[in-house]
Every structure is written in C-alpha cells, then in structure tokens.
Write a protein that binds this DNA or RNA. Sequence first.
DNA 1: CATGAATGAGTCTTCATTCAT
DNA 2: CATGAATGAAGACTCATTCAT
Lengths: 207, 207, 207, 207
Amino acid sequence: MTTGTRRRLAPEVRRRQVLDAAIEVFSEEGLHGASMDAIAARAGVSKPSVYAHGGTKDELFAACLAREADRLMSTLTTAVLPDAGSGGADARARLRRALRAFFRAVTTHRQGWTVLYRQASAGEFAGPVDAARRGIVARAAELLAAELGGSPETALPVAHTLVGAAEGLADWWLGADHRSEDQDPADLLADMLVAVVWPGLDALRQA
Amino acid sequence: MTTGTRRRLAPEVRRRQVLDAAIEVFSEEGLHGASMDAIAARAGVSKPSVYAHGGTKDELFAACLAREADRLMSTLTTAVLPDAGSGGADARARLRRALRAFFRAVTTHRQGWTVLYRQASAGEFAGPVDAARRGIVARAAELLAAELGGSPETALPVAHTLVGAAEGLADWWLGADHRSEDQDPADLLADMLVAVVWPGLDALRQA
Amino acid sequence: MTTGTRRRLAPEVRRRQVLDAAIEVFSEEGLHGASMDAIAARAGVSKPSVYAHGGTKDELFAACLAREADRLMSTLTTAVLPDAGSGGADARARLRRALRAFFRAVTTHRQGWTVLYRQASAGEFAGPVDAARRGIVARAAELLAAELGGSPETALPVAHTLVGAAEGLADWWLGADHRSEDQDPADLLADMLVAVVWPGLDALRQA
Amino acid sequence: MTTGTRRRLAPEVRRRQVLDAAIEVFSEEGLHGASMDAIAARAGVSKPSVYAHGGTKDELFAACLAREADRLMSTLTTAVLPDAGSGGADARARLRRALRAFFRAVTTHRQGWTVLYRQASAGEFAGPVDAARRGIVARAAELLAAELGGSPETALPVAHTLVGAAEGLADWWLGADHRSEDQDPADLLADMLVAVVWPGLDALRQA
DNA sequence: CATGAATGAGTCTTCATTCAT
DNA sequence: CATGAATGAAGACTCATTCAT
C-alpha cells in the first residue's frame, strides 16, 4: 500500500522491519497498550505478516527484549575488553570508559532497553525481563570483581547499585532538554557518576 | 463473596479496601494488564462498587499512584526532619537515616512505589508518573543541597543518581531470598549504599 | 438533601412529583435513554423513593403515558362538549373549537403527549402506546361521525388523517421560532388546518 | 452462523447486509433498545463485523436514517417528475400520484422511514432526524408551491399538514389487518387522502 | 507469500433494582 | 418511611488471532 507493489523482501529484512516497529510501539505504548494493528501499521506491513515474521505478541515482545539486551550487553563488553583487569591506577579510567559506553548506548537509542524493560517488570514477563537485567548486572559484577578484587558474588550488590545509579542519572538527562550542551553527553554523565561513586569504590577495594 | 453477607461499610473504609486491592493487582499485572474484574475480586466487592469508590480505571490508577507517592514522601520527610542541615560531622549519619527510611518503606511495602511507577513510565500515564517521581527526587535534591551546600538545581543530577542507586540496591535485595538475615535489611542496605556513595559526596561538598 | 430535613409528604403528592419529573426526563432522553437516577435527581428524591411511588421503570413509563393520554383526552372532550352534534352550519365552528383545544394542549405542554408517545412507538411499549393513541383517535372518530354522519367505523380513517395532520402542523409550529406572533398560536393553527380540511370534510358529509 | 462457513464477501455487500439488519432491529426495538449483539445476530455476522462495516452504533443509526430518507426522497421525486407544474386541471392527478408513491413506499417497506424516524425524535439524534424529515417536507412544499402557486415558504405549513395527514392515514392502514383488500392499498389511501384535502387545497390556490 | 476480511473472547462501564440502616 | 450503599446483568467496543484469496 505504501509502495504500490508489494515487494517481496528477504525474510530477515522483514523480520528486522517488524522488530524495529515493535520496539518503537512497545516503548511508546507499553506491552499491553501496544496493539498488533499499531505494530503492523508502523512496520508498513499487514497484520498476518507481523505474525509470520514476529510470531505471537508475547513472542514478539520477548524477541524485542532479547535484542535490546544483547545490544546493550555487547556494547558494554566491547567497551571494556581492552586490557581489562590490570588493576592499579587505571581502574578508574576503565570504569569511566564502561560507563561512557553505557550512557552512549542509552542516550543514543532512547527507546531501547531502559524504556523497554520497565514496561514488563511485573506481570507475565517479570521472569524474562528480570533474567535479562540480571544478566547485565552479572556482567557488571564480573567487571567490578576484576577491578576491585573479591568474588563476583560479593560484588553483586555493588553492581546493582551502580547500574541503578547509572539508570537514574540517564533518566535525569533524558528527562529534560540538554541538547545544547557542547560536550558529549556520555562523557558528561560518565564524569558525574565517576565523581560520586569512585571514591567509595576505591575505598572498598582497599578494605 | 468473601464475607458471604453484603455488609454496609463506611465509604472511606470501602475506598481503602478498593485502593489496597488495586495497588496489589496493578503491581502484579501492570496498568493495562490489570482488569477491573480482578481488582473487584481481590477487594471482595462487586465491580460497580469498585467504580463507586475508586472511579474509572484511570482515576483509580492515578489515586494509587498518588497514595504511594505521598506515603513514600512523608516517610522520607519524617525521617529527615530532626536537626536537619546542621552540616559537619553528622551529615553522613543523616544521609544514612534517610536511606534507611527509604529502604524500610520499600522493603516493607513491596508492592508500593517502586513496582508501581515502573508500570506506567510510558503510555498515557507517563506524565503523572514522571511528575510524581520528580517530586520525590526534588525532595532528595533539597536535602542534599542542605547537607552538601550548593543550590538544589546543581544537586539534582546527584539526587537522581542517588535515588537510582537506592532503587537498584533495593531491587537486588527484593529479588533474591534474604529473609533469613538477622540484621534489619534496611540497616544493611543503608550501610552498603552509604559505603559506596558517601566518600564521593563528601568530596563534592568540599569542592 | 435539598431541604435539609427529609419531609414526609402525602403519598399522592410524592407520586405527582415523581411523575412530573419522569415525564420531563422521558421526553428529553427517551424511554431507554432516561435513567432512574436522572428521574430521582430531577424529582429531588432518592431512587428507592422513585420505586416506592412510581414502581418499576416500565410501570412508571406506562403511568406517564396514561396520564398524558388522559390529559389530552379530557381536554378534547371538554372542548367539544357544549351543544355537540347539532349538525348544520355550526359543524365547522365545532371542528375548529376542538382543533384549537388540541393545539393549545400541545403547544402549551410541549413535553406532553406528542413528544412522549413517539419515544415508544416501537419496542416493548408499542402495544400500550398504540392503544392510547387509538383511544384518542377513536374519540375523534366519534365526534366526526356525529358531525358528518355515518358510523364511527367509517369515520376512523378520516380521524386518523385529521389527527396526523394536526400533529404535523403542530410539529411545524413547535419546530421553528414563532414566539413573536401576536395571535394565539392555537387559533392560528386551527384556522390553517380548518382551511385545508373543512371543504373536503364538508363534501364527504354530503356524499 | 447462518451459513455455517465463514464466507468472504465484498465490503459493499456486507455493508448492505449490516444496514438491512440494523434497520430491522432499530425499527423493532428503537435506537436505545437495539443492541449491537442483536443487529449482528440478525445480519448473520459477528459483532466485530458490524463495527467494521457499520461503524459505531451512532454512526450506524445515522447511516440507516440517511438511507431511508434518501430512498423515500427519491421515490417521491421520481413519482412527481413527469410534466410537473403545468397547473390547471391535472394538479389533482399529480397530487394523487405523489401520494400514491408515498403510500406505496410506506406500505411496502414497513420498517422504513415512518417507523425509523420516530425512534429518535428526541435525544441525541433529534437534530439529524429533524433535519431529514424537514428535507422531505421541504421537497413536498416545493411541489405544492409549483402546483398551487405561492412561495415554498408559505407552502411549508401546508406541506407539514399534508405529510402528517399521510402518515396518520398510513398508520391506520398499517395498524389493522387490511391484507385482504383487493385494491392496491396505495391507490385506496391516496384516494382517501385526496378526497379530504384536495377541495381545501384547491380553494387555497384560487385565493 | 502477502493480504483483506472475519471472529471468539474479553474489557470497561452503566443501569435497574434491592437490602440494611 | 426514606435513604445510602451494594450488586447482577447487560451493553458498547476492541483486540489478538486466523482463514480464504
């Protein structure tokens, strides 16, 4: 209808179209608030196509969840990879780099993880959502343990604290108009968060 | 149905019943996921009674939101009131006390604010929800400004960070089974959070 | 609530209050559109009082119907009583007098019969409504038969025609703004209708 | 349900099915009395189909109204078209022809206009209904003005009278059992009405 | 394959009616 | 008696899902 001809696209391309549209609509309307009609319209395809390429509404939501979780996870991992865990004077810099990656992901891709996972923190999807979030936090805990010493398990509450803090700060930045700042927002936010938490983390390490 | 007899109760009592049930169900199922039938059943009244005492679904949700926001707000305020803002050596203790109040509220009343406001961070209720959360954070910013010096505006991002961190830590504690701990969980959590953030905050104050 | 004290009134007075309110509301909202709540509010009493004095909604509507039918019926009868049926040169004058009475009733008491019976010309009340209307037309047929000669049965279609014509003309007058006319509207309308139908009726009589 | 198989039909066909059913049910039960369930059942489709093809209940009712008004209007216009307005000796014949068309339409299609428009002469639809009826009467006034001379405005009350008379007479015929008459009822009714009103109209013309 | 058309199931909301005070 | 409070039943409307083309 949009193109006049109904073009046959490769299945993976269609699937990506559908997922993109779904993420947008889920982010705006919430899990229950989003309708399959709206998703189909946003994707520019018919409703049966949505079912063909995205499956049931629940499956579709789960796929969105998984894709955004993966995206965030790989962003973090990539940012941290180089010379991780060498301890010493650069630990602060490495934390800052990881946080900057997180903030960049979140501020660039607004409708992604942060918005998405909140929709479903209760209800039928509480399980998968929690699992995904715990995955991310677990990864953060591993990194922290490498930097600060100690086992990942003891680092777990600290990781939760850190991720929560980062989300809170990102919320603040996303909430108001900060578009005119000349600095890269990710840099700014990473600096702010490091200033607040690094002294405490450093002290924990030495304890 | 619960009582078998159809008892006449004072309107305020019934309203409380309905609000309590609504908060439970909204917490479990989400705004759109919750049905008025479920709320009526949970409250042990008929659906028309829900409408009579709680109004429309939207009004009911707004009322739940308002009640929990008020509850949390007054908890915080009460905890902080005594000898606030005297600066100096007790600032750390006062922060700890406020955090303990927050954690107590959140861990005691699981289905309260933290769970509730996330349901509606997008969609039709994004506005009210955000406003409520911003109110709480603004209060935190005032307290921080009193302790650390500086204007509430500059304290705002720090407040967001702090609230986010507290929520993250609370999530961790609520997520797994920590019921057997012998210490008061609120104390434990407050100690943990203070350990992470106080050094940084202290440094900010002196800057 | 209106008076502060709930005054005990004689049952008939209460019943009249209720019926008056019911006629108003039924006229404005229609049979199904009117709610017992609205009627109670309009009457200034509580809903159980409406039931106590007016009975079920159906009974109440039937009572309204009956009261307005009676009112119209007696208006007509009264107008026609003096020296009815003397035939001859005054038949035209007597027809005019009856019509004037009809128009006066209808234009004075807008929310009465004309509006009311149309609400229910179909549905559960088709029967009673039709019966009431037929009663009125039958009375008209009797009068016509007395004037024009012939049996009431043969006069029946003529009576239907006449009543329909009167209603149509009344509709016209009620529809637009004719408030500024200096002549009594009932006189005007009666004259108009007589001008159209009398020659034909007169011819019928002689046939 | 009627067909057993769920057949795919052209939208216009389905729309006609739905409109036909709606007119029947609205005629029988009234605007408020009719339920969308009943309309769906009568049409032999599911409720969502009614919404898909007929829209909201209000829209559906408006569509029924419009269709019946158009049908009646075109019937009248068609009947009157040939050599209209030539005045003189045939005016009576032309009036008779128009009335016969009206009566044929009304007696053939019982559940049409006459029944339909009364349902809604008050309430939310008072406006549209009145407008539609006024359209018909205005057309009648034009015709009358062409025949009798004078402007359509002065003919308006006469037109209202005439339409009302025709409706009243039609009511009489529809009310009782006249099925065994050997004459075409439309002819019979037109003759009766012409006998009553023509002399008066003729006199008006010469005045 | 892609789609317009169709539907069963469920949601919010209101109403006529009746207890218990 | 008059009433506020309570409810069973029903109605308008929407949605996720699937045939038939």
